[in-house]
Amino acid sequence: MNRRKKINQLLKANAKKASAKLAPRSSKPKYVSKADRAKLKAEVEQAPVVD
Score class of each variant (00 low, 15 high):
39 K>T: 01
31 Y>V: 07
8 N>I: 10
14 N>F: 08
24 P>T: 09
9 Q>S: 14
34 K>D: 15
2 N>I: 05
44 V>W: 02
24 P>D: 04
26 S>G: 10
35 A>C: 07
19 S>G: 04
46 Q>Y: 02
40 L>P: 03
23 A>K: 05
26 S>W: 09
5 K>S: 06
5 K>T: 11
27 S>C: 02
27 S>M: 07
49 V>N: 11
41 K>D: 08
1 M>P: 03
36 D>T: 04
7 I>T: 06
33 S>H: 07
40 L>Q: 11
45 E>Q: 14
3 R>A: 15
28 K>F: 02
10 L>N: 12
2 N>E: 13
51 D>I: 12
51 D>Y: 06
47 A>W: 00
34 K>M: 01
15 A>N: 07
21 K>G: 09
51 D>S: 12
20 A>K: 12
37 R>M: 00
37 R>D: 03
35 A>E: 06
49 V>L: 04
23 A>M: 09
42 A>E: 09
10 L>A: 14
9 Q>F: 04
33 S>Q: 00
8 N>D: 13
24 P>N: 06
25 R>T: 15
19 S>E: 11
13 A>D: 15
35 A>L: 10
11 L>S: 04
24 P>M: 10
35 A>G: 14
17 K>M: 02
25 R>V: 13
26 S>M: 05
45 E>V: 13
28 K>L: 10
11 L>V: 03
7 I>S: 09
2 N>P: 15
48 P>M: 00
46 Q>C: 14
22 L>N: 10
7 I>F: 13
29 P>I: 01
19 S>P: 02
47 A>L: 03
12 K>H: 12
15 A>R: 00
43 E>F: 03
29 P>E: 02
38 A>D: 12
18 A>R: 08
33 S>C: 12
6 K>I: 09
4 R>G: 10
23 A>G: 03
15 A>I: 14
25 R>M: 11
6 K>Q: 15
50 V>P: 01
18 A>M: 11
20 A>D: 07
31 Y>A: 10
3 R>C: 12
27 S>N: 11
30 K>H: 13
38 A>Q: 08
47 A>M: 00
13 A>K: 02
1 M>H: 15
17 K>T: 10
35 A>M: 08
45 E>L: 15
48 P>T: 00
32 V>K: 05
49 V>S: 06
18 A>E: 05
49 V>Y: 04
41 K>N: 09
4 R>F: 08
1 M>Q: 07
20 A>E: 04
2 N>G: 11
15 A>S: 14
27 S>Q: 13
19 S>F: 08
25 R>E: 12
37 R>S: 11
8 N>P: 06
36 D>P: 00
33 S>N: 01
32 V>D: 05
12 K>C: 10
13 A>F: 01
35 A>I: 07
11 L>E: 02
38 A>P: 03
7 I>N: 14
39 K>Q: 01
31 Y>T: 12
17 K>G: 08
1 M>N: 05
43 E>T: 04
4 R>N: 08
18 A>T: 07
43 E>A: 14
45 E>C: 10
28 K>S: 06
40 L>S: 14
1 M>E: 10
44 V>R: 13
30 K>D: 09
20 A>L: 08
4 R>Y: 01
42 A>Q: 10
31 Y>P: 15
14 N>V: 11
47 A>F: 02
20 A>V: 04
24 P>Q: 01
46 Q>S: 13
16 K>C: 04
10 L>P: 05
20 A>C: 01
